[in-house]
């Protein structure tokens, strides 16, 4: 398993750069992870989504919630989510929040 240093702390990541242990994540890591996803600055709207995902993930075995769970839970529309996290919000939110990538069964 590869490791990576984010915000001065070494964490475990998989081949695609997703953190594999959600407990290693800290809020300080989010801006750096976001920059890697092409998001220069995290606004309060970004944080609303990240906070919601972190909170939901504790009930989801560390997995990121689905887009529908995010839109229902935060009141932010799917269209806005795509504006906040361009090109694949589900995956980007998961990465920035230190959670597992949304997966199918195979």
């Amino acid at each position: 398993m590869a490791t990576r240093t984010i915000a001065g702390k070494t964490v475990q990541v998989n081949d695609e750069g997703f953190m594999t242990n959600a407990a290693e994540w800290t809020r300080e890591m989010a801006p750096e992870l976001a920059q890697g996803e092409g998001i220069a600055e995290l606004t309060p709207a970004h944080w609303k989504v990240i906070d919601f995902c972190r909170e939901s993930a504790s009930n989801l075995d560390g997995k990121s919630p689905t887009l529908r769970q995010i839109t229902t839970g935060t009141g932010i529309s799917t269209k806005e989510l795509f504006a906040l996290f361009p090109k694949g919000p589900a995956k980007k939110v998961a990465k920035i929040s230190g959670l597992g990538k949304p997966e199918g069964c195979v």
């Binding site: 998989n14 081949d15 887009l67 949304p102 199918g104 195979v106």
Partner: peptide
């Protein structure tokens, strides 16, 4: 597909 690919699990992706 809304997922990142047809196969998303690492071992299944490798084999299939």
């Amino acid at each position: 597909t809304p997922l990142s690919g047809a196969f998303t699990k690492p071992i299944a992706s490798k084999h299939l």
